[in-house]
Nucleic acid binder design. Structure first.
Length: 429
RNA sequence: GGGUCGGUGUCCGAGUGGCCAAAGGAAGCAGACUGUAAAUCUGCCGGCUCAGCCUACGGGGGUUCGAAUCCCUCCCGGCCCA
C-alpha cells in the first residue's frame, strides 16, 4: 500500500482484478475521490474469510481517499441471489435476517473508518429503499428497462433454465433488478459511480450500470475480483464444516489461525495477496521461500499471523501462535504451567466433577461428552483407529478410562482428537 | 387445472418385493508417509446398553410371512399442455 503506487496498479499487481467494465476504471480509481460500493449477503450471521477480500477492497478505497460504501442486503437478502447457486434458495425470514444484519454491520465496522471526513465509510441497508418502492412504481420505472431476453441470457439464469431438474422462481429471477436498483439508488443519493464485487457478481453489476445509463444517461463502472478458491477448487463458505468465520464465537481464533497455517503451497501466495497488507518486497521473498524451502512454511506462518492479527487483533494473534507451538510440541508434560495455560486458554473446556474423575471416566464417554465426537459410536471408532490422545499420548483401548491420576500441570487433562482438535478437561467443584 | 417424470444416507447417484443400514462416486473423519502442505496408501463413514437391537429410502395409510421397491392418498419439484 502507500501512496507511491496508484490503487489500480496496486490491485492489479496483487491479482485482485478479474474484470473491469471499462478501461476508465483505472483512471477513476487513481483520480479524485469517488464513492464506491460492495454488497454483502446477510444470509449467515457472520462474514467469513471469503468476504475478507471485499472488505479489504473497501479499506483500500478508503486509504486512497475514496468513500467506501458497504451495503448489507436486508432487502435483497430476503430474495436471494441466484448467482453461483445451482438450486433455489430457502428464503430467510426477516427476523433472522435483521439479526444477521446487526452482526455483519458490526463486523464491517471494525475494518473501516467512519470518521475521516469526505472518505468516511458508510454501511447501508438496502431494505431502507427497496422496502419503500411500490410494486407499480417498480414495474413502471425500473422493470421497464430490463429485457427478459437479456436476463435469460445471463449465466446465472441460463444455467438454471437449462437444468432439467432445477428451475428458477420468478423471485430469484428478479434478484438482478433489485441489485441494479441498489446501484441506481446509491448513484442518485451518494454519487456512487463504482460497484465492486467478486467475479460471480459481474452480471448483477453490469445490469446496474445499464440501468443507470438508461435512466440517468450517465456512466457508472464496475470492477470484479477473482474468486479466491480453496485448494480443492471450491469456494469459501461452501460446506458447513469448512467455513472459516470471522466471528470468534463461530470459528475460534485458534482455528482461524490454524486454517491459514495449514494453507497449501499452491494457494499461499494468492492468500497473502488477498488477505494481508504485506507489501511487494516481502511477498516476493515469501514466494521464494515457498519455492525453495517449502518445508519451513514461512509463507504459511506469515499469512496466518498477518490475517489473524487483522481480524482478531495483535494480542490474540500472539496467543494463538504460542498455543499452536506449544500444542504441537511433543512433550506437553514438560511445558511450564504458564505456557500451558496460555496454550489452552483458547481451547474448548469440558468440566467433570471431582467425584466422577476419582472413580474414573471411560474414554469413550469422555470424548463424546467433551464434544470431540458426535456420538458414542463415533467416539469408539476414533479411539479404536488410534485417533484419540490423552495428554498427547495415544489411547486406543476402548475400555480405558481417565481418572484423577491423569491430571497434569494446572489440574487439567488434555484431550485431543486427530492432529488438531483439543479439548481441555477441568475439574469442577 | 390436466398430463407426465421424479423425491434414496452430508451431497451426487444406483437399487424396482427377501441376499438392503441400502452399489458407486464425492465430501468428511482417523491412521501411515511428509512439512500441522499436496499427492498416495489403509480403515471408517445412521444410532445404541454394539457378535444383538433400534431408526431410516418425501408424509400418512394399506397389501404381504416380508416393501426403498406394489397399491391409495397427501405434500414438494421438473417438463409439457391449459
Amino acid at each position: 500500500m502507500g501512496d507511491d503506487v496508484g490503487l489500480y496498479e496496486e490491485m492489479m499487481s496483487r491479482g485482485l482484478i478479474a474484470q473491469v467494465t471499462d478501461e476508465r476504471v483505472a483512471e477513476i480509481l487513481d483520480g479524485s475521490s469517488i464513492s464506491a460500493y460492495i454488497g454483502f449477503d446477510p444470509s449467515a450471521d457472520s462474514l467469513h474469510v471469503g468476504h475478507l477480500v471485499q472488505i479489504f477492497n473497501l479499506r483500500r478505497l478508503q486509504e486512497h481517499g475514496h468513500r467506501p460504501i458497504a451495503v448489507a442486503g436486508g432487502g435483497t437478502g430476503l430474495i436471494g441471489d441466484p448467482s453461483g447457486k445451482s438450486e433455489e434458495r430457502n428464503l430467510l425470514d426477516s427476523e433472522v435476517l435483521s439479526q444477521n444484519l446487526i452482526k455483519i454491520r458490526a463486523q464491517l465496522s471494525r475494518f473501516l473508518d467512519f470518521d475521516c471526513g469526505e472518505s468516511s465509510a458508510l454501511v447501508l441497508n438496502n431494505a431502507d429503499w427497496l422496502g419503500k418502492i411500490s410494486l407499480i412504481d417498480y414495474l413502471r420505472d425500473v422493470a421497464k428497462h430490463f429485457s427478459v431476453n437479456q436476463m435469460v441470457a445471463k449465466d446465472s439464469v441460463k444455467s438454471r433454465l437449462n437444468e432439467r431438474e432445477q428451475g428458477i422462481s420468478f423471485t430469484e429471477f428478479s434478484y438482478m433488478l433489485l441489485q441494479s436498483y441498489d446501484f441506481l439508488h446509491l448513484f442518485d443519493n451518494f454519487a456512487c459511480r463504482l460497484q465492486m464485487g467478486a467475479s460471480d457478481q459481474w452480471g448483477n453489476i453490469t445490469s446496474g450500470i445499464e440501468l443507470i445509463r438508461k435512466m440517468r444517461q450517465q456512466a457508472a463502472y464496475g470492477l470484479t475480483t477473482p474468486l479466491v478458491l480453496k485448494a480443492d477448487g471450491t469456494k469459501f463458505g461452501k460446506s458447513e464444516s469448512g467455513t472459516i468465520w470471522i466471528d470468534p464465537e463461530k470459528t475460534s481464533p485458534y482455528q482461524f489461525y490454524q486454517f491459514f497455517l495449514r494453507a497449501e503451497d499452491e494457494v499461499v501466495g494468492g492468500y497473502l495477496r488477498s488477505f494481508t497488507w504485506i507489501g511487494e518486497d516481502e511477498l516476493s521473498e515469501l514466494d521464494l521461500a515457498t519455492a525453495e524451502q517449502a518445508s519451513k512454511r514461512l509463507a504459511q506462518s506469515a499469512l496466518a499471523e498477518a490475517v489473524t492479527e487483522i481480524v482478531h487483533g495483535p494480542e490474540m494473534a500472539r496467543k494463538v501462535q504460542v498455543a499452536a507451538r506449544a500444542l504441537f510440541s511433543e512433550d506437553i508434560l514438560s511445558l511450564s504451567p504458564d505456557v500451558l495455560e496460555m496454550a489452552i486458554e483458547d481451547a474448548p473446556v469440558h468440566y467433570v466433577s471431582a467425584d466422577a474423575l476419582a472413580r474414573g471416566v471411560g474414554v469413550v464417554d469422555l470424548f463424546y461428552a467433551a464434544g470431540l465426537a458426535n456420538s458414542k459410536s463415533e467416539s469408539r471408532k476414533v479411539i479404536a483407529q488410534g485417533g484419540a490422545y490423552v495428554n498427547n499420548s495415544r489411547v486406543s483401548d476402548i475400555e480405558a478410562s481417565v481418572s484423577s491420576g491423569d491430571l497434569i500441570v494446572g489440574g487439567v487433562v488434555l484431550l485431543r482428537r486427530g492432529k488438531k482438535d483439543y479439548v481441555v478437561v477441568r475439574v469442577r467443584g
